[in-house]
């Protein structure tokens, strides 16, 4: 039986997320390589726009209008739809590594007993099965893994593939919602916090303040440099634990994993916990007083100096070059 690969789409403010366009691209390419079929899924209170967007990547999309998603956590509902599609012949499920994607993946593993290949950097079809490559053990090894059976679940990290639309748009089939197998928590309130608007994972340039920044006031200097560069601000665990910046900005093992075109670190020492979250960045520039800081191992350019002098000079130089 030819494989059927499901791309699980996520919706943010009515639109398909960027990560979901990447997931859909991977699902379509896997299906093409396997001689199978790619299917997309969107579950939302108002799924139409996101479903139409997903149909530009895969030949067929299942859109489920589920009013419960306006005030309930989506994972149990999405897992119920995926479980139904698995019963109908879907063989492999691809989800993005987001909080909801991880929750759906875990729920599905619990419900179905299927295997999970988590945090894939790439997925390719080899010898009748998908093979996932992932960085493990704090970046010390890259493993290639597969399923021993004919079905399984993969989660794909953000930004590891470039989304590519299909040559022609696919069709959208609408369905009524399936009942969730596990209770969905109610969402009582959605609170937006300042400084959390731009996703760290999506940013092309990330300017990171570490322990050396020293204070919340020090972070203003980091913010100014990020603004001059058109980037976003990230943080290390030390600066988050010190309360200088919210946890949502943390990069590393217990925070976000980023892979921007430029990582610019100020006063970052480079604890292993942090390096795991940034060492795949395309270019790494560090400003630090201590030339022996462990972050030097991954730096392309290491400026030995006082960040309180270098960072403002850098902000001024960038503004000058940009004629601003």
């Amino acid at each position: 039986m030819p494989p059927r690969i499901l791309a699980v789409g996520e919706v943010a403010e009515g639109s398909l997320t960027k990560l979901s366009t990447e997931v859909a691209t991977v699902a379509r390419k896997l299906a093409e390589a396997a001689g199978g079929e790619a299917v997309g899924l969107v579950v939302d209170a108002a799924p139409d726009q996101a479903a139409a967007e997903l149909a530009t990547y895969v030949p067929k999309v299942v859109a489920v209008t589920n009013p419960a998603l306006s005030n309930e956590v989506p994972a149990p509902h999405v897992a119920a739809e995926v479980a139904r599609l698995l019963e109908e012949g879907v063989t492999h499920v691809i989800l993005g590594v987001s909080q909801d994607g991880r929750d759906v993946a875990g729920t599905l593993v619990g419900l179905t007993g299927l295997g999970l290949l988590a945090n894939a950097d790439s997925v390719e079809w080899q010898d009748a099965a998908p093979v996932s490559r992932a960085s493990v053990l704090a970046g010390k090894a890259i493993t290639s893994s597969t399923f021993t059976g004919a079905r399984g679940i993969v989660t794909l990290r953000p930004g590891v593939v470039t989304a590519e639309a299909a040559p022609s748009a696919g069709s959208v089939e609408t369905r009524d919602p399936a009942a969730p197998a596990v209770p969905a928590p109610k969402v009582l309130d959605r609170v937006e916090e300042a400084g959390a608007q731009v996703s760290l994972e999506d940013a092309r340039i990330v300017v990171v303040g570490g322990r050396g920044v020293g204070s919340p006031e020090g972070f203003r200097m980091v913010e100014e440099l990020a603004e001059a560069l058109g980037g976003v601000v990230g943080a290390t665990r030390a600066s988050v634990d010190a309360g200088w910046i919210p946890y949502a900005r943390q990069i590393g093992q217990t925070g976000r994993v980023v892979k921007p075109a430029l990582y610019l670190g100020l006063g970052v020492s480079g604890a292993m916990q942090h390096r795991v979250g940034m060492q795949a960045s395309q270019a790494i520039v560090i400003v630090n007083r201590d030339p022996d800081a462990p972050i030097a191992d991954v730096a392309d350019l290491f400026v030995v100096g006082d960040l309180f002098e270098v960072a403002p000079a850098l902000t001024a130089e960038i503004r000058a070059r940009r004629g601003g």
Binding site: T146, G152, P291, D300, F302, V304, E309
Partner: peptide
């Protein structure tokens, strides 16, 4: 349900440039 087929060391990063200059 899953198995590791092979493991590789991550690609080595080329040594970076270190500078110490006035700001």
């Amino acid at each position: 349900a899953t198995k590791v087929l092979e493991a590789d060391a991550p690609p080595a990063r080329a040594a970076g440039r270190v500078v110490q200059q006035p700001a």
